[in-house]
Each structure stands twice: as C-alpha cells, then as structure tokens.
Design a protein around this nucleic acid. Structure first.
Lengths: 234, 234
DNA sequence: AAACTTGTGTGTCCGGCGGACACGGGGTGT
DNA sequence: ACACCCCGTGTCCGCCGGACACACAAGTTT
C-alpha cells in the first residue's frame, strides 16, 4: 500500500543501470489501459494484462507491487496532465465549465475510470493536479476553503455519476427497454415516475443528465457566490 | 439475469406446499446484510453468507439464482419502504429535502449500498418506489418529465457520492493524515488546493460535503423552477 | 403399504482470480 | 573469469462463483 505512493510520486529512475527492459511500468500500464478500454475494468486481471505483453503474470509483480498498484498507475496515466485554466478567459463559471468538459471528455475516453476510482486508494500527482485546477478556479469567489473543496467534490461527483452508466436507479428508466416494460406494467404503482419517464422518452435524447446537472450545480454555486459578494442583499 | 426480476417483483408464494424450510430468501438476505453491515461488501461471498446460516454455499443456490441475484435481494431489503412525501407540508423543496435526509439515513445504516448499487443490475419495486417519491415531489414545479428525471438523478448521485467514502480524489484531503502529509510536501505544486484544504481542516469538521452539495443542488433547481414560473423575468 | 415425485441440502469438481516463493539464466561490474 | 543481481518463469495456495450429480425426507399416487 505504501510502495505505490512512491511509484506514483517519485520519478522512476532505474538506478542508473542502462539496461534494455522488455517490461516497464509504463508498458504494463499501457497494456492494462488497452484491456480496460476495450473489454472493461472487469477484464483487467494480471493474467490478461500479462498475456497482452506475452509474459507471465508473475513478471508484472517485478514492476508493480499489487493489482491495486497497477490500477493506480493506470488511473494516473489515463487522466492525463491537468489543464491550466488560468489561460481561460472569463470568470470562475467559465473556467469550471471548461474544466468539467475536459474532465468529462477524459472520462468518456476511458469509461472504466468511474469503476477504477472507487474505494480507498492512493492518489497520484496528475489526479491531484486536476483537483488543484478546479480549486484554483474558485480562488477569487469569496468562498471559504471548505466550500471550495466541497464545490469541487460536488462537481467531480457529478462527472462520475453521469459517466458511469446506471449508477443510480434513476437513469436507465428512459432508455432501457426492459425497464421501460416493467415500469409500464406497474404504472399504477409509480404514476409520477411513469409519466416523467414516458415524457422524457418522447423528448429529444438525453445526455444522461450531464448538462442539466452541471447547470444546476453552477447555478447553485452562483447563488452562493453572489450572496457572499453582496451579503446584505437577498 | 431474468430470474431475479421475478424474484424481486413477484410475490414469493411457495407453490402451496406447507413445507417447513430451514432456508428462505429472506433469511439468506438478512444474513448477507449482516455480513455486509459488519464486514463490508467485499466480505459478502456465498461461502460467508452460507457459513452464517450453518449451511453449505450450494444450498443458497436453491433460493437465489446467482450472487447478483442475492445482492439484488439484499438491496431491495435494505432500502426499505419508500416514504410518502405527500404528507409532508410545504413545497417541493421541503419534500425533496426530507426525501434526501431519509435516503441518506438509510444509506448511512448500510454503508455498502453505494458499492452494491453500481453497474447494470435489476431494480426492485421498493427502490423504484423511492424514485417515484422524489419524482412525484416535483410534480407541480413546471419542470418537464426529462427535467424531473434528471433532477432526481442529480440528487441520488449526490447521496451516493457523499455516502461512499473517498469516491472522488477530492474528499479525503482534509481528513486523511497520510494524504495531508503528501499534500504538505508538494504544496508548491498545488498551492490552491493546499490552501483550501488547510483552511478546511482548521474549520469545523465537515459532513463530507453533504449539506453544501444539497443546498447547491436545491438552489440550482430553485433557479430553474422560478424561471419557469416567470419566463419573462431574469 | 409400496412406489413415485418433488423439493432441498451436500460433496465434488472446475476455471479464474490475486499473490507467495523458489528457481534459473543472462548481462554487468570487478 | 568470476560473482552478483536483476528479471522473467513455474509451481503452489486459498478464495471466488458456479455446474452437476447425489442423498434424503417428505407428500402424493396407486
């Protein structure tokens, strides 16, 4: 558990030895990401990743301490370098919108990220960098430190929820044929849900609540920030 | 995959046979919930659950079709009966707040629920009932069906995110000693985050962003609903 | 009463998982 | 030439979900 922190935070110099290595942490991570991108996180086993590199699974353990370690490196590699939002013209809202869009795009490219980033786990510098970006975008808003943290957490959570399919019981109702059929059969029991789902299904296809939720969250932040700037007005 | 839908939605009559059963679906679910409550979702294996009932694991398969099935029954049992919010005085905001509090309390009692309710899975009537409750609370707001669905999804997601510890990389920064140490070491690299986390740590202990996020979401919904009611005013 | 059927728990086996551990072989520094 | 050390291999373990054949106790039928 502690080793991977070193693996993530310390530069990986190989002790000066100029050896040519068949296997490196980066190659392993790349192979694992390939597996996850194409077959999902469940398919990421040491066996599978090793097979893709034409190597036995135990060979991987020469470079990563555990599977959790491997996943941590995968994440750190997949999230990419955090953006510099200071170059984005506009206020906090413009910047946070940009941040959210970039984040969403990254997570869209690697749909396994929501599944991989649950539970307690080590965090790498690039991932921290993304958080830094968002917190920094809220610098001049008058929010307290705790509020800035909470705001970024709220936004991150929204990305996670909309990017991982079927996280809550709510979403698939409008699309999943099977669920729609069940709902139709029990429409007497769930009239409000049935009506909303039917109406939603007839309307233009949804983006999984992404835009809706983002706008609501930013509106809510806006309300708070405005109040802070003008504390004596409603 | 299809059998458990029957298990969840159809009343479980045992064919009329008046047999005395050592094992029932309900007893199995109760034992599994005990395991999950006390040792976490990862400890819920067929083996473990069976051992708690003094039975072999294969005996469980006479009553549930698969582990996914068992988990589905666990969830349906743990979420409990959905509330009737129509008896709550006040407007949509009062009702949704009540709903969120009840939901949060339920999830607090069963911390494994976030982990168990990820991924594609069958949904039971009680879980649907909770969604129905929330959607119904938004009936008279002038929101479209899709918007009501998205709003409930947004709220559900917030509960999920705040109840499952360390979902995003943001949260543990203020509490986890190890992470705080790492952050302190790299404070030059993440100045905004460091400042916010330090300030947040010094302030009163947080509720994991629960109140903050809930207020922001409800404020954002309020903005939208007000606009809908008065479309020609800012 | 005897035979049959049905529902329920058991024992055994399988493939796949993460991981421990001893081994071997090849390139490097002395 | 030598020893060392790094790194990939082979084997083994316990746990997981699950298939399948079997044992056994009722209740039903003849």
């Amino acid at each position: 558990m502690a080793e991977n922190v070193d693996l993530l935070w310390e530069p990986r110099d190989r002790g000066g030895r100029p050896q040519r290595l068949a296997l490196t942490v980066d190659r392993i991570a790349a192979a694992a990401i390939e597996v996850a991108d194409s077959e999902g996180m469940a398919a990421v086993s040491m066996q599978n990743v090793a097979a893709r590199l034409d190597v036995t699974k135990m060979a991987l353990y020469r470079h990563v301490a555990s599977k959790a370690d491997l996943v941590a490196v995968m994440i750190e590699s997949a999230v990419g370098d955090p953006p510099n939002l200071m170059t984005v013209p506009g206020d906090w809202r413009t910047r946070l919108t940009r941040w959210a869009d970039l984040m969403r795009e990254t997570w869209r490219r690697h749909p396994w990220l929501p599944a991989a980033t649950t539970g307690e786990r080590p965090t790498g510098p690039r991932e921290v960098g993304w958080t830094e970006s968002a917190v920094a975008a809220l610098s001049d808003t008058g929010l307290t430190g705790g509020e800035r943290m909470d705001a970024v957490f709220l936004l991150s959570g929204h990305i996670r929820n909309t990017q991982s399919s079927a996280t809550a019981g709510t979403q698939p109702w409008t699309t999943d044929k099977n669920l729609r059929e069940v709902l139709h059969r029990h429409r007497d029991r769930f009239p409000a849900l049935f009506e909303a789902a039917t109406e939603a299904h007839a309307a233009t296809p949804t983006d999984n609540g992404w835009t809706f939720g983002l706008t609501r969250i930013l509106d809510g932040l806006s309300t708070l920030i405005t109040t802070r700037h003008h504390p004596n007005q409603p």
